[in-house]
Design a protein around this nucleic acid. Structure first.
Length: 420
RNA sequence: GUGAGCGUAGCCGAGUGGUCUAAGGCGUCAGGUUGUGGCCCUGAAGAACGAGGGUUCGAAUCCCUCCGCUCACCCCA
């Protein structure tokens, strides 16, 4: 038996209500904020990702689905959404449009990871990006929009964390200071942190081990090392977020995993225990477009993990709207009637009434049982009597009432009733 | 890549060496008289117990290997 590959999952019909709920709200949100949809291919040139995400990051070194196609092109299934959006921005000359350009996407993301709760090898992200403007007001808009997304979904008990990790002119100095500080505490750190010290010092800050917590808390803060520009940018973002009454906390230990982030970074986390808790995160990436071969173009964006959103909807027991009511069921008795049933079903559909025909040779009882378990509210029955008279018996499955009517009347009745 | 737990029919799940060629529930299918559902009743189909090897007179039950699932770490949405 074939099974879905490790870390992938089928989204079954009974799950679709959640997905539809989240997607509908995501799309409505983007409409409200003036963001337009952009769909990009599932795979891209490998270089696009290695350049943007960073050669040394985990995503690039061990998580990308990389392959060579038949003509020898090195491609990768997209491991994140921002770089492809930037690529499309450049490829289609969107730098000639009025700036900023505001785009969003709902897309599958692929990373080779060990699966666990809320983490998959293929997952879906909803993200939005505002490209071409360095105004802190735009940072505030993106953060507000992210927060609003979760509000629209009805999710509560969320934290909004904010930080600034500076830019290429001020970050080196901060990193130096961080390493200097940590080198004095190295012996007391966990083994992971010892590795981080060499590989990615910023990550030292968000170690979950209690042993490292105090060290991280007392570590130099990136916000104390910001250059003039980054400092005033951050202060303005904070001012705007306060004015927008967003319940954010400045978290000096918040860093993000991709190399391209500059200045503002933020994350939204649920209250629960620590495991891979980010529901979504984002930040500014002012150097990325230039890195990808364009002119210097500042930008900021956010992405949320759809599976994690759905997980939290379930945990918080948020009811999602039911999917559309099941179709009208057309039952028959006998061969002649069956042909009529097939024809009637077709007519109903042409009149925009969802309908299904009973197939096979079940007894009427069996057909009604089926209609019942499908949840059909109405069953149209055609037997010998109806074939002779050209009429149809309509049964209301909720009340048990039924009456025999002409086909014209049937359509009128069903049209009225299914539009309620 | 590392660590822990788990693996019995579509689903849940009993059974931990010998009436197990494996219970029960849900679901599926058929029937409960002649054209009628939901409740109820009856019956049927459906697993050699993840795979392979070993221990034993005898294993779903013990051991080994592999595979898979789950959770956690790393890292991330």
């Amino acid at each position: 038996m074939y099974k879905a590959p490790r870390g992938t999952a089928d989204i079954l019909p009974e799950e679709q209500g959640y997905w539809r709920y989240v997607e509908d709200r995501a799309i409505a949100l983007c409409l409200l904020y003036g963001y337009q949809r952009l769909d990009t291919p599932a795979f891209e040139d490998v270089q696009l990702f290695t350049r943007s995400i960073g050669e040394g990051t985990d995503i690039v070194t061990k998580e990308m689905y990389t392959f060579e196609d038949r003509s020898g092109n090195l491609l990768a299934l997209r491991p994140e959404g921002t770089a492809p959006v930037c690529r499309a921005y450049l490829e289609h000359g969107m730098d000639n449009l009025p700036q900023p350009v505001k785009l969003y996407y709902l897309a599958a993301i692929f990373r080779y990871e060990r699966p666990q709760a809320g983490r998959y090898r293929q997952h879906y992200q909803f993200g939005f990006e505002a490209i071409g403007d360095a105004d802190p007001a735009l940072d505030a808009e993106i953060v507000e929009m992210a927060w609003r997304f979760f509000e629209l979904l009805g999710l509560g008990r969320l934290y909004l964390y904010l930080n600034s990790i500076g830019c290429k002119s001020c970050r080196p100095e901060y990193l130096e200071s961080l390493k200097r500080y940590y080198s004095a505490h190295l012996s007391g750190l966990c083994s992971d942190c010892k590795a981080r010290f060499e590989k990615n010092p910023l990550r030292l800050l968000d170690c979950k081990k209690t042993a490292c917590y105090d060290v991280a808390e007392a570590a130099p803060k990136s916000t104390d090392y910001l250059c003039r520009d980054c400092k005033s940018h951050f202060e303005t973002v904070v001012e705007y977020l306060k004015a927008l009454k967003l319940p954010f906390d400045i978290n000096h230990r918040l860093v993000r995993g991709l190399d391209y982030y500059t200045k503002t970074v933020f994350e939204i986390q649920p209250l629960g225990d620590g495991a891979q808790s980010a529901l979504g995160g984002g930040g500014r990436y002012d150097d990325l477009i230039e890195e990808l071969g364009g002119k210097p173009v500042p930008a900021i964006g956010f992405a949320a993990g759809m599976e994690r959103v759905v997980l939290n909807l379930k945990e918080q027991k948020i009811a999602v709207p039911a999917l559309p009511a099941p179709p009208v069921f057309v039952a028959h008795l006998g061969n002649e009637a069956k042909l009529e049933a097939v024809k009637l079903t077709s007519i109903l559909r042409k009149d925009d009434i969802a309908a299904i025909t009973a197939t096979g040779d079940r007894s009427l009882k069996g057909q009604l049982r089926q209609a019942n378990s499908l949840g059909s509210n109405y069953v149209a029955i055609i037997g010998d009597d109806e074939v002779k008279s050209g009429a149809v018996t309509l049964r209301n499955m909720m009340t048990g009432e039924q009456k025999t009517v002409s086909r014209v009347e049937l359509i009128k009745l069903l049209t009225r009733v299914t539009q309620e």
